[in-house]
Amino acid sequence: MIVVEKRGFVLPSIHSAPPFFTEQPNPTTHATATAQWIKLILTYARHRKLFTLRVEDAETAGSDWEEILRNERINRKILAPHLSNILEAMVQQNLAVYEPPKQARSVLVFWRLQEEWAEVLYDWVTSTGQLNTIMTFYDITDPPLESLLTNIPLSLLRKAIGILGKTNRSQIIAIADGEGVRFLSRSK
């Protein structure tokens, strides 16, 4: 059974199975369930444009993640230790990074790979005619017209800029009130 929730997100049928919300003792079943959780988290994050997932979201009613971390119809929710293990697996697979660093309770979710974000950023700059223009990070994360980059976390934006910098398509510039970035034409 596929369930469509109030925000138009289609939950997979596994979301209605009580064992899905329980950490499985069998290693093979555990690995399969973890992979299904990771796919669900990434798909949902992309659908809702969510970047941060915290272990506390498993315990907090009304969180942005409640729709997938709970299933009231079967009276189940994922427990914090189980979610913590899933986040650890995501970090190990480079699908998330602990943010802030040096803790293990909150991750930045990569529903696009960092390299994909770099290309999204470069394509946006090109399409808006801002090559060779110095821009602030605020110009990118809060543009006049909403874009795929609206509200992107600064740490992820910096990673994307760094990736573009390695191919000589961006450079960080010191400006009066901090840092800016200039995007350069592709080298031919």
Rank of each mutant, 00 (worst) to 15 (best):
V4S: 15
E5G: 12
K6Q: 15
G8C: 13
V10D: 14
S13N: 08
S13F: 10
I14Q: 03
S16L: 13
S16G: 15
A17C: 10
A17F: 10
P18G: 06
P19V: 00
P19R: 02
F20I: 03
F20V: 06
F20Y: 01
F21D: 09
Q24I: 00
Q24S: 04
P27I: 09
T28I: 10
T28R: 11
H30Y: 07
A31V: 01
T32L: 10
T32K: 03
T34I: 05
A35P: 02
Q36H: 07
Q36N: 14
Q36C: 04
W37R: 09
I38Q: 01
I38G: 07
K39Y: 11
K39L: 08
K39E: 10
K39I: 07
I41Q: 04
L42H: 01
R46T: 06
R46F: 04
R46K: 09
L50C: 04
L50F: 14
R54L: 10
A58S: 06
A61G: 13
A61S: 15
G62K: 10
E66C: 12
E67Y: 13
E67F: 14
I68E: 05
L69T: 01
R73W: 15
N75T: 11
I78Y: 04
L79D: 11
H82S: 11
L83M: 00
I86P: 00
I86D: 06
L87E: 09
E88R: 01
A89W: 02
M90V: 00
Q92A: 12
L95G: 00
A96L: 05
